[in-house]
Amino acid sequence: MNGVLTIDSAIVSAIVAHARRDHPDEACGVVAGPAGSDLPTRHIAMDNAARSMTFYEFDSMEQLRVWREMDDNDEEPVVIYHSHTATEAYPSRTDVKFAGEPGAHYVLVSTREPDAEEIRSFRIVDGVVTEEEVNIVDATVDA
C-alpha cells in the first residue's frame, strides 16, 4: 500500500451509521474537504437513486447541487464512499468502470457482518485500483 487516508473517527462513524441505516440497500455519499488539503471534513450522505442491494447511483440533480456547493466553498470530494451489503469492501468491476474522480479516496464499507464493519480505502485511477491505509484520528472536526 502506498497512500493513506486520514479521516476523523466521527466521520467514519457517520458513514458506518449511514451504511447500517440503508442496509440491505447500498448507501453512498461524499466527504468534502478544502481543495488541495486531502482532508475530509464535511460528510454528505447522498441518496442512492438506484435503491438497490447491488448498485448505487447518485441522483444527478442532487449531485449537481452538492458539486456546485463544494465549488462555491472551494472544496472538493476528498472521499466518495459506498457500501457493499453482502460482499467484501473491495471495488467491483462496476466501481472501477465508473470511478471518475481521480483525486478522490474511494472508501468502501461492508455491512455483510451484522456486528463488525470492514472499511477500506482505494485510489482508482485509469482503471487501476490501489489500496491505501486508513488512518482514523480523533476530533479534528465536528462531523
Binding site: 448498485f55 447511483e57 457493499h84 471495488p91 468491476r93 466501481d95
Partner: peptide
Amino acid sequence: LPAVAGGALGFAAAAALL
C-alpha cells in the same frame, strides 16, 4: 460531471439495469 455510480453488481448486469 462524472456520474458517481457502482456497486457490487457485475458491470454487464448494471449496464442492463440502466
